[in-house]
Structures are given as structure tokens and as C-alpha cells.
């Protein structure tokens, strides 16, 4: 087991945020944590990322307890996470300071290529679009070759077309590199398009309400009856009819 949450409880002051979370994530698995805004799913990701200590319980990764942030596991924020004072190359190489120069060079070139920022190596984030900044942040994370990626609503601020492209990109990268991915979202469609399993969280205090395995191979056809059935079952789980 790659990541194991055991009996995580968390509260901010007197507000309970997380209620007895138990979850196992396999190596190389793509897991979406889905829940309404403000339910505590981001807190859960911050706990596994080592930025927040849970009030109770522990997370173990490779059977070691998480005690803080670790460069083997990189957190990707919304695109605001890139460093605005560094250009594209400098951002990608930010975490590579322990590597010899030649290896740094090789990785910069590789990931610039992979996320489609060729020709923008010396552009600053202010000169990039939202989608490009998001890809840059993913590249910066991948460059240190982490074995786990945490993504906290990474595409939330993008327009819907860019968001679809970014999902396709992320899947392509995931299929190439097979990282374990924990992906927090409030977007049901997004979770069904991406995940191996969707962990449906309840309203606060968040419990795991249901875990839905998405047994459709990639690339997923969004008009496939199986896709629609799974999506609808999650809509039902959250208590929404999918009618506007």
C-alpha cells in the first residue's frame, strides 16, 4: 500500500472538519477526492502533504508516518503556486538544486517539452496564460521525480475548454510516468473522467460517504453508457439530480 490514512479526525477550534477518515491508495493509482466546497477535502490533502497535522490519527506513506512536507511528494496548487520572480526554466529547476548541472539541464528540457512550453523557456509567469502556468507548475513538480503528486483543485480557475485540455494532458503524463496521484475536486465530471477511484466525501464534518471505482479504460468516451451510469450514480450519491 502506498498511502494509508488511518482514522484521521481533524477539527479547527470547535469545528469538526474530518470525521474518521480511513483510506488506502495503491502505488500508481489515480484517486479523486470529491466533495462540496468547504467540506474539508483540501484539509485532508494538506494533512497527507504534511502541511497540517491531524488532530487525531496518522497518514503513512510507504509505511512511514508523514511528519512534514517531503520532496518525494509534491503538492500542486492552483496556478498561483508558480514563483512569479522566476522564468519558466528557473521554475522547473527550482527543486533540482541537489542534482549535477547536466542532469538539471536534461530534466528542464524534458519537462519543458512534455508540458508544451517549448519557446517559452525564458518567459515569466505574468506573460503566460492560466493554463500555461498550471502546466508549468505540474512540470516543476514532475521535474523532481516525486512518487506522489497532490493536486488541489488544480484546474478550478481555468476556463472550461482549457480545463478539458489540461485533464487530457494530465492523463497523458500520468500514463507516461505512473505517479500515484491524489486529486481533490468538487467537479463530478472531472472526477469520473480522471480517476481510478472516486472518493465521495460528505458535507462537513467530512466522512467518506462512498468509494466509486471507475472501471472504464482511458481514453474515456464521455457518451459511453457506462460513463454516464457512473457519473449519475455519483450525482445521486451527493443528492443531486443532474438536471438544470
Amino acid at each position: 500500500m502506498k498511502v494509508r490514512f488511518s482514522n484521521i479526525n481533524h477539527h479547527f477550534g470547535s469545528t469538526r472538519v474530518l470525521d474518521r477518515i480511513d483510506l488506502d491508495v495503491k502505488e500508481g493509482e489515480f484517486v479523486c477526492i470529491l466533495g462540496p466546497s468547504g467540506c474539508g477535502k483540501s484539509t485532508l490533502l494538506n494533512i497527507v502533504g504534511g502541511f497540517v497535522k491531524p488532530s487525531e490519527g496518522e497518514v503513512r506513506i510507504d509505511d512511514e508516518p508523514v511528519t512534514g512536507p517531503d520532496p518525494r511528494r509534491i503538492f500542486v496548487f492552483q496556478e498561483r503556486g508558480v514563483f512569479p520572480w522566476l522564468d519558466v526554466e528557473q521554475n522547473i529547476s527550482f527543486g533540482l538544486f541537489k542534482l549535477p548541472e547536466g542532469e538539471q539541464r536534461r530534466r528542464i528540457d524534458h519537462y519543458v517539452q512534455m508540458v508544451g512550453l517549448k519557446g517559452f523557456e525564458h518567459a515569466y509567469p505574468r506573460e503566460l496564460s492560466g493554463g500555461m502556468k498550471q502546466r508549468l507548475e505540474v512540470a516543476r513538480a514532475l521535474a523532481v521525480n516525486p512518487d506522489v503528486l497532490y493536486l488541489d483543485e488544480p484546474f478550478g480557475a481555468l476556463d472550461s475548454i482549457t480545463r478539458l485540455q489540461m485533464r487530457r494532458e494530465l492523463l497523458r503524463i500520468w500514463e507516461a510516468e505512473r505517479k500515484t496521484i491524489l486529486f481533490v475536486t468538487h467537479d463530478i465530471e472531472e472526477s469520473v473522467q480522471l480517476a481510478d477511484r472516486v472518493v465521495v466525501m460528505s458535507q462537513r464534518p467530512a466522512r467518506i460517504q462512498k468509494i466509486v471505482p471507475i472501471d472504464i479504460p482511458h481514453p474515456r468516451d464521455l457518451s459511453d453508457p457506462r460513463y454516464i451510469a457512473l457519473r449519475d450514480s455519483i450525482f445521486g450519491e451527493i443528492g443531486l439530480a443532474h438536471q438544470v
Binding site: G49, G68, I74, F77, G81, F94, G95
Partner: peptide, 13 residues
């Protein structure tokens, strides 16, 4: 300073 930038910095070790 954006908390995100400090967090990212620590995350990269």
C-alpha cells in the same frame, strides 16, 4: 508573501 510560495519552497526540501 503568499503562503503557497512558502509551502512550495518547503515542499521542495
Amino acid at each position: 508573501i503568499e503562503t503557497i510560495h512558502l509551502s512550495a519552497g518547503t515542499n521542495f526540501g
